[in-house]
Simulated scan of single mutants.
Amino acid sequence: MKNLIYILLIGISTLISCDGSDAPIYPRYAAFPDERTVATQEISIDSVFFRYPYRVTVKDSIAVIMDLHNDSHYFYSFTYPDWTPIAPFGKRGKGPEEMLSAEMFQFCSLDSIWALDANKMQITRWAISVTEKTVSRVEEITLDKNLVRSLDFYRTDSGFLITDYLGNYRYHKVSHCGRLIKNIGKIPTETNYEQYIHPALAQAWRSFTGYNPQNGIYAMVTQLGEALEIYNLKKQTHNVVYGPGGEPQFNEKGGESIPTGIKGFMDIQVTDRYIYTVFDGMSWKERDAFYQRGEAPPKGGRYLYVFNTQGTPIRKYTLDKNIFGIYINETTNTCIATCVETNNPILIFKL
């Protein structure tokens, strides 16, 4: 009964389907049973200038920050928790050991830091030496050309999970050698789009992903709108939940997606019990109003949403600053987050 209080069915879909049907297919959540306001603390990091600190992960007393719009390197490694610089890596450039772009990275161990370069269609593995203060490139994986362009990934014991770019599937299973093994799922839209719209649909539904090998939960959250998908790879189930923002809204023009609804989620982390997500929620009309006033709109999300692994909303945190990437430590009940609107790139707060 408790779940029924917070996961509600709304009678009108956020987007009316092309065949005239407006009946919702997926459940909606309308509110969170627990809402809290949280103050953040800035962490000072010396000797490094960040332009757009985007992602952060901590493992084995090492932290890695990804800088999306950097001048020289995409990644920077530090000791943790004192944040002493170790070495940058992922040099920006066109050389054979340089990166044209960086979409996401995964920190598995000191000798297994994986980074995705969509422009090169390549995943690379890096190893950190704390004593020598170096990060070396030890492996390169060229992705199957049938993937066209890969924007998010997660490494598992059996291969890579990579989101689909063309809109025909939801994600792909790819071998550790980069070969396409299987196409899986479809975009869970409640609107019946024509086939030619699918590339624009995929752009609108571009999602951030998280995976936890302990419980087999592979979760996705949309960058536009407010849609959460949960694949339980152990039980072979798939749950979809919409929030008040509904599914991504867009106009198609020349095969491209033009957003018309709201900005959605910024990052996601799946733990053994929960799914943590950063949420924005600002409409594109509100963003345009900032530009019309000659101002820059806020960068990042002001909210941290917590769901259980079935998609039931558990808690909503409202922060005093906007954030992008998160690292959740449930042992210390702490969140580390990146921020582009402060002089320091890292924020920390208690949950």
Rank of each mutant, 00 (worst) to 15 (best):
D144K: 03
K145G: 10
L147E: 01
L147W: 08
R149F: 10
R149W: 02
S150A: 11
S150Q: 04
F153D: 08
F153I: 14
D157R: 13
D157T: 14
G159H: 09
L161I: 15
I162D: 05
Y165M: 13
N168L: 12
H172E: 02
H172T: 14
H172W: 13
V174I: 11
S175V: 08
H176R: 12
H176I: 14
C177Q: 00
C177S: 02
G178H: 00
G178W: 01
I181R: 05
K182S: 10
K182V: 11
K182E: 02
N183K: 14
N183H: 12
N183W: 08
I184P: 03
G185P: 06
K186A: 15
K186M: 03
P188Q: 04
T189W: 00
Y193C: 04
Y193H: 11
E194A: 15
Q195T: 14
A200S: 06
A202C: 14
Q203C: 06
R206E: 05
R206N: 00
S207F: 00
F208L: 07
T209Y: 01
Y211N: 00
N212D: 04
P213N: 08
P213Y: 09
P213V: 12
Q214Y: 09
Q214F: 10
Q214V: 14
Q214M: 08
N215I: 12
I217Q: 01
I217M: 05
Y218M: 03
A219H: 00
Q223F: 10
Q223I: 12
G225I: 10
G225V: 11
A227Y: 02
L228G: 06
L228E: 00
E229W: 03
E229R: 09
I230A: 06
Y231Q: 12
L233A: 03
L233M: 03
K235R: 14
K235L: 15
K235F: 11
Q236G: 09
V240M: 04
V240Q: 07
V241T: 14
P244C: 10
Q249S: 14
Q249K: 14
N251V: 13
E252A: 14
G255C: 05
S257F: 03
S257H: 03
I258H: 07
P259D: 05
P259Q: 06
I262L: 10
I262G: 05
F265V: 11
D267W: 11
D267G: 01
I268V: 15
V270P: 07
V270G: 12
D272T: 15
D272P: 12
Y274T: 15
T277S: 12
T277C: 01
V278H: 01
V278S: 02
F279G: 05
D280F: 06
D280P: 10
D280I: 11
D280Q: 09
G281H: 06
G281V: 10
M282V: 14
S283F: 08
W284Q: 10
W284K: 07
